[in-house]
Amino acid sequence: MRPREFRPEQLVSLDKQQVQHIAMLARLKLTDDEYAESVAKLSKIVDFVDQLSQADTDGVVPMAHPLDAAQRLRLDAVTEDVERDRYQQNAEAVSDGHYLVPKVIE
């Protein structure tokens, strides 16, 4: 079994500008080399998944989840003990119980 054939005339390959936009959306800093490689590989991936366009899905209900069930509801009760200092041991910059980030200007 192989996936259906690619149709090269429909390739939707990405360019560097698009990859930069995506990297910004995803908050990823890439080096120049990484950009070059990402453009090539992401293009391949996008072209690969583009074969989905060949599937006939008229009227098909999108499947968001493998479980055909409804959300279970929790009783409104305080059940969590917060161990702030223990949790904050994983944070590199903490002051006076706050997590620190470079100053946010609003």
Binding site: R74, A77, V78, T79, E80, V82, R84, D96, G97, H98
Partner: peptide, 24 residues
Amino acid sequence: TSSKIFSGAATAYGAEANTQACLV
């Protein structure tokens, strides 16, 4: 509510920073 929308942490206003923030 007493607890948060998706976790069992308390919602009371004015607690010391991050003492009502559970892992969720």
